[in-house]
């Protein structure tokens, strides 16, 4: 199908965006990379009064290390994040996750901020941001406020972002030295929507894992930080016992919805499978090389 008629503004500065949002409220849609909004327009799932194109706003696509934090501008593309040496060095979890996002042509346009603001439960960046304890910067005519990623995602495609606000950047603390990561995702074909996935982080101390954080995608209406499961993975026991403990705890924290091809039970099973893969990867990484 073709997009319905709508008015369009190419914004040149953020205050102009704020003014439009203040005036149009819910009937305005922000167009960033457009890799989700454009399909929705083409299928007439959404019919905005005005579309505000922010792709040419200056200064919103940076990826920088400042005072121990990585600042990622909302307009940084998936491709830019995947190719960034700063990201590879300081947030390798994101570099690994980028490769799972759709396909090259889509990664060239789709943006970090757009993916977070859409809050698709099967998307990679929301789960990564929750795992990394990212802070999202929401800007409006009233100023800016910061919100932790785990508080930002409130439900299916529902976030704390209000209709007069723009997600302008994300601030991610660089994990402490010795932090290990794993990003595991299952999809039917390369680049398809995730069936289920996990972003995992842990610190390695004397060959043992601690401060484990497991954030799941495709396992509920929002990214899920599985704290009880992380606690249940206690390496005082053998790896197998700890893993079994973690896997059996997972059901109390994940509530995956069935999709066209997978029942909720299958998804939960697959979540356990990728949990094992992620933990094995973290433990192997934590072992000093022989």
């Amino acid at each position: 199908m073709k997009a319905p008629p709508f008015a369009y503004v190419r914004a040149r500065e953020l205050p102009a965006v704020f003014a439009l949002l203040d005036r149009h409220g819910d009937t305005a849609r922000i167009l960033a990379g457009g890799q989700s909004l454009m399909p929705m327009l083409n299928m007439r799932v959404t019919q905005p009064g005005v579309t505000i194109d922010i792709t040419r706003l200056p200064g919103l696509a940076g990826i920088e290390l400042k005072n121990g934090n990585i600042h990622i501008g909302a307009l940084a593309t998936h491709a830019a994040i995947g190719a960034s040496p700063v990201i590879r060095q300081h947030l390798p979890l994101l570099a690994d996750a980028a490769a799972h996002i759709a396909h090259p042509a889509i990664r060239n346009r789709g943006t970090f901020g757009g993916s977070l603001a859409l809050a698709d439960p099967a998307a990679e960046w929301p789960a990564c941001c929750v795992a990394l304890d990212a802070q999202l910067v929401l800007a409006s005519s009233a100023g800016t406020r910061r919100i932790a990623a785990r508080d930002f995602f409130q439900g299916l495609y529902t976030t704390a972002l209000q209709s007069h606000e723009v997600l302008s950047e994300v601030v991610i603390p660089v994990p402490a030295a010795g932090t290990r990561h794993a990003f595991i995702e299952l999809a039917r074909r390369r680049g398809d929507y995730a069936i289920v996935g996990v972003a995992a982080l842990a610190r390695s101390q004397q060959g043992k894992l601690c401060q484990l954080r497991l954030a799941y995608l495709g396992a509920g209406e929002t990214p899920v930080l599985a704290e009880k499961t992380s606690q249940a993975f206690d390496l005082i026991d053998t790896f197998e016992k700890a893993l079994t403990q973690a896997q059996s705890t997972l059901a109390s924290e994940l509530a995956p919805a069935a999709d066209l091809y997978h029942s909720a039970a299958t998804k939960l099973h697959l979540a356990r499978v990728i949990t094992a893969r992620a933990l094995k990867q973290l433990v192997q990484l934590a072992q000093p090389a022989a």
Partner: peptide, 14 residues
């Protein structure tokens, strides 16, 4: 750079 021609408004090519 390769992109999807259906996921870009023509005016965005300006």
């Amino acid at each position: 750079e390769i992109v999807r021609g259906c996921l870009l408004l023509a005016v965005q090519a300006d």
